[in-house]
């Protein structure tokens, strides 16, 4: 039976499949590179004392601030979810919120120190004892929109 030719599934042009693929591609946004700055906020700091399992602290550390221009360009609204993937391949999903008008330039994200920001850090400290924890390159993909 072996004729020396590679065998495999028969390829056939399928108009419907082609349309579906093209439709999906038109709605698919490539992941974009952003710079993530984790930092202290008042609510995060208070939450440490009040209780890390309480809603106030959890809400604060699980909200990603996105620049006004980026929110608009990506069609995001407060409460939508995005996926962030670090250079080391760590990935998290997080809700977004619009930053104050001039607090963040486009291309920069901010999140309060906490579980999410720490998960995006790599294990390597580059001989310093400190993993790169600010100014991290992350890939952002839109996961769900309201």
């Amino acid at each position: 039976m072996n004729s020396g030719m590679a065998s495999g599934p028969t390829l056939r042009y399928d108009l419907v499949t082609d349309f579906r693929i093209r439709y999906r591609m038109s709605n698919y946004r490539m992941a974009e590179t952003f710079i993530l700055i984790p930092g202290r906020t008042s609510d995060q700091g208070c939450g440490i004392s009040e209780g890390k399992f309480l809603e106030k602290y959890q809400r604060e550390i699980n909200t990603l601030m996105v620049a006004v221009g980026d929110m608009s360009r990506l069609g995001l609204a407060d409460g939508d979810f995005v996926r962030l993937t670090s250079e080391e391949g760590q990935s998290v999903e997080v809700a977004v919120s619009t930053a104050k008008k001039d607090e963040l330039p486009n291309g920069m994200l901010f999140i309060a120190y906490g579980d999410i920001s720490s998960r995006l850090m790599g294990g390597d400290t580059h001989g310093s004892g400190m993993p790169t924890s600010k100014g991290m390159d992350v890939q952002l993909e839109v996961v769900s929109q309201g």
């Binding site: 760590q90 906490g114 579980d115 720490s118 998960r119 850090m121 294990g123 993993p131």
Partner: peptide, 10 residues
């Protein structure tokens, strides 16, 4: 609180 503040591998 390293279980909240450290990298995932740590």
């Amino acid at each position: 609180d390293p279980m909240a503040n450290f990298s995932q591998p740590a």
